[in-house]
Design a protein around this nucleic acid. Sequence first.
DNA 1: TGTTGACATTCAAACGATTGAATAGTAAAA
DNA 2: TTTTACTATTCAATCGTTTGAATGTCAACA
Lengths: 369, 369
Amino acid sequence: MAQRRSGHVTLLDVARACGFSVSTVSIVLSEAPLSRNVAEKTRQQIRAMAQQLGYHPDAFARSLRRRRSQTIGVLAYDLSDPYCIPIVRGIQAGLQPASYLPLLMDAQTQRGRFDSYLEMILERRAEGVIVIASWVFDETNLLSDVEKNNVPIVIVSRDLTERGVSSVLVDNEAGGAMAMRHLHGLGHRRIAVIRGPEELFDSAPRWAGVQRAAAAAGIQLDPRLVFQLPSLADSASGFEGGLDCARRMLASGRAFTAVLAFDDLTALGVVRGLMGAGLRVPEDCSVLGFDDVLPAAVATPGITTIRQPLREMGLLAAEWVVEAIEAREQRREQTARLHRAPPELVVRMSSAGPAGSTNRVGGRRDEGT
Amino acid sequence: MAQRRSGHVTLLDVARACGFSVSTVSIVLSEAPLSRNVAEKTRQQIRAMAQQLGYHPDAFARSLRRRRSQTIGVLAYDLSDPYCIPIVRGIQAGLQPASYLPLLMDAQTQRGRFDSYLEMILERRAEGVIVIASWVFDETNLLSDVEKNNVPIVIVSRDLTERGVSSVLVDNEAGGAMAMRHLHGLGHRRIAVIRGPEELFDSAPRWAGVQRAAAAAGIQLDPRLVFQLPSLADSASGFEGGLDCARRMLASGRAFTAVLAFDDLTALGVVRGLMGAGLRVPEDCSVLGFDDVLPAAVATPGITTIRQPLREMGLLAAEWVVEAIEAREQRREQTARLHRAPPELVVRMSSAGPAGSTNRVGGRRDEGT
DNA sequence: TGTTGACATTCAAACGATTGAATAGTAAAA
DNA sequence: TTTTACTATTCAATCGTTTGAATGTCAACA
């Protein structure tokens, strides 16, 4: 069994072993057009020998020569955020048929890693890049470095079309409005809201949607019942933030029958906070989340939430990046595209109608105090 | 700005732009030992020009020549399982100092993907492979293909040392015993147990530990309160399994004050099932999980669980694979190693002492029926 | 016999970076 | 003046694969 210095079987090994030239072997094994001309007997011999020696073409040599890496860099801001996974899944699904391989990197919410991984993606000659960046990043380098190298890029969970980057994200405004309408429809009128951290791109439009729907329904939002998450250290810290907000809203002494949280983890934190104070969800207070990640679905009560079609968003991003690569090859001009995916209300057990005015949270607390 | 056919800036571009030869430029930019000999002025010029043109070395060409890919293939059975993520994090942390890049692939619990990704990992000349495979896989190919190519491999969450593969996994037996002892220590005597699916490697030793600790504590396990999860379609289906088991154990009419579930998702399913029947956790029944994944921590009540040191396990696997690569380079023989990581009890709110015999679950149900 | 065409295979030049060996130039030592 | 030692730079081969062009073979046709 011929083992070369590198420890890997090469074309030359196969060629020598079966007595044909490297060219012929290459043509046969890579199923080049020319392989029509190669005698069937020869082909069989070569293939058998390659199989026997355990030959695998060297992707480096191949990519170098073909000038195609068949690779798309996928840079996620934080893989431990359950939010990322369905997007990644969608991307995988979208790249598969075009036979691109995702080169998946996890920035772990660290700016430094983000940059260095992006650099590595470029060095590995990814033909396109997809960035999942709901988390906040200064996007200067993104543009200067990636676009300088003429690599198509699509961003998920953020709108950067004004900077010329195709973007796929959920319609946060519609989602916020949807959440508020759901609570209003159930009969809630005194609603506490937890806004996302300021630096987070989703926060503003989501809040705008909430306000719009509240106004449309004639609901007055009590400013003392509007909270804001601090800027987050990591993705799971939304839970702590929600817990803290719940305590503060209880301490405020204001009456409320529902909490509209920024995302699911925040909602789970709120549930913990409310239950810790002896309140029941949803009997004493409804809680709404946003995103529809796994923990929201398996908690009891399940969290009613605004679902983002994450998988579909990833799929679309993948399709766009593939299209952009093709367009670049044909020297067609491409303009930045934008897709706002429609969110969807998922009703679970954490939301219900308020239990009448005497049961309002604030009311009960007032009695207790 | 010199843009070549490939669309990427090459050494030749930089060389031409600043008037030195490709060799000199290479020596300077790759900081080869010879670069000591290059005049400081020259170095500055070259570096400035490289910067200006946005030069990034081509990883393919470099790896081809150096015969080093600086890459470790990481093949996870299912990234959407929250169990995987901390392991991946640990791996990343372990590879960083050795400046290896993880090539992360997600098999999505599909055998076909598993094989084809493994093949791609080999084609990309990963210098080592780490497989995260708590999920069941027939490992024949693993051995034949990977080891045939002389690539070091470490497996996480499974013991394959008899097949000559270094393995890192939690001490399932100790964990099972630990869980049982915790419940016994709280005063529970009538305990329902949900065993893992048969094909899952962890199931047997975990159950053995449970039995051992039960015997040691003098607890009789009622066979009618021992359930088994069906073979799982995907990782999140443990929840459904737990829910179903909870219903069956309630329907059985047997008395029990605690449920020892196979893993956290199963435990969350049990909680849903019990609460759905009007029982409170932990007042009426304690519930224990295993693994300590995110959903268990953020649910209310938080699930008491047996924590696997996942991050540490990933870290160790990374270190081992790096060591194995070094050993191979120095032609040292390596034997398969085994690490059984010690599990750790994490007490949350889902477990408490039983509420006296009159409050036992079965007792209440009997009254109700 | 010479030409044509189809078939089967090989030559040799890339792809972009690295690196051992070689080439100059300079300065100090013998 | 030659030798030695060093500095500064370049030559040219190499990694493993692909591919346009070239070669050689054979049969059929004029």
